[in-house]
């Protein structure tokens, strides 16, 4: 029976990138509870991106178990993993987060196109997208604007709305504030937390900026949970 109290669980996970410049990552244990906000700190090359790819199911661990919302990702087929990711995980990247040629509305609604269950949770996806934009402090009428015409801060808020729509159990934010100035950074995080709490969503944010630590329920250092090995070229 799936343990839904744990939104994310990694147990004895090991992964090796194939190729000449091989990179091995081992994670003994990483567990995130439902509604928890966690900051994952790590330097460049510490394996953060590999860890996120494992959680999102775009790569599969060589050994161990990765469970999201109680489902073992490795047990799913490639197609099922893509659908599962759309249904269960909201993603926010650093910059260049949106399709610049598409409208704000299309960007926000895009994950619902691949996640019918997530879509079913919403009676009116357009109204929900508008509400999220409003709650995230975006100006009225932004829905029809082209994403590429917005400021970087506004684009990140649209990315947050896209991650939050349909209330996925897990949101992964990969250094979403790295391209924002300090004031915009604080406002963005405040709005993101407010929405995560409101929806009972688990938030895993990856960053190398330790100054953000105080704002999260828990802070994890990559060096504490993961071992990496990089072969010499």
């Amino acid at each position: 029976m799936p343990d839904t109290a744990k939104t994310l669980q990694l147990e004895n996970v090991a992964y090796s990138w194939p190729g000449r410049a091989s990179f091995d990552l081992q994670v003994a244990d990483l567990t995130l509870a439902s509604s928890e906000t966690v900051l994952l700190l790590g330097e460049s090359g510490s394996g953060k991106s590999t860890l996120l790819s494992l959680i999102c199911g775009t790569i599969i661990a060589g050994s161990g178990r990765v469970s999201v919302a109680g489902t073992d990702i490795a047990a799913l087929s490639a197609g099922q993993r893509d659908r599962f990711r759309a249904e269960q995980i909201g993603l926010i990247f650093q910059q260049f987060n949106l399709l610049p040629f598409a409208s704000v509305q299309d960007n926000i609604l895009l994950p619902l196109r691949f996640a019918p269950e997530r879509r079913k949770r919403l009676s009116d996806p357009n109204a929900e997208a508008a509400r999220l934009c409003h709650d995230l402090g975006l100006p009225d009428g932004v829905m029809s604007s082209k994403a590429g015409n917005l400021s970087v801060g506004q684009q990140q808020r649209v990315a947050a709305a896209r991650a939050l729509i349909g209330m996925p159990p897990l949101i992964i934010a990969d250094e979403p504030t790295s391209s924002l100035d300090a004031a915009t950074q604080a406002t963005f995080l405040e709005l993101l937390f407010a929405q995560s709490y409101a929806h009972g969503t688990t938030l895993l944010m990856v960053s190398h900026d330790a100054r953000l630590s105080s704002q999260f329920d828990r802070v994890i250092n990559m060096t504490d949970i993961a071992q990496t090995k990089r072969d010499a070229l």
Binding site: C56, T58, A78, G79, D82, R83, R85, A86, E87, L91, F93, F96, N97, L98, L99, L110, P111, R113, F114, A115, R162
Partner: peptide, 16 residues
């Protein structure tokens, strides 16, 4: 590549 990565992240299969 970024555009395709966004589609994949949103749940699009490679065949999409």
């Amino acid at each position: 590549r970024r555009e395709m990565a966004i589609f994949r992240a949103m749940g699009a299969r490679p065949r999409v």
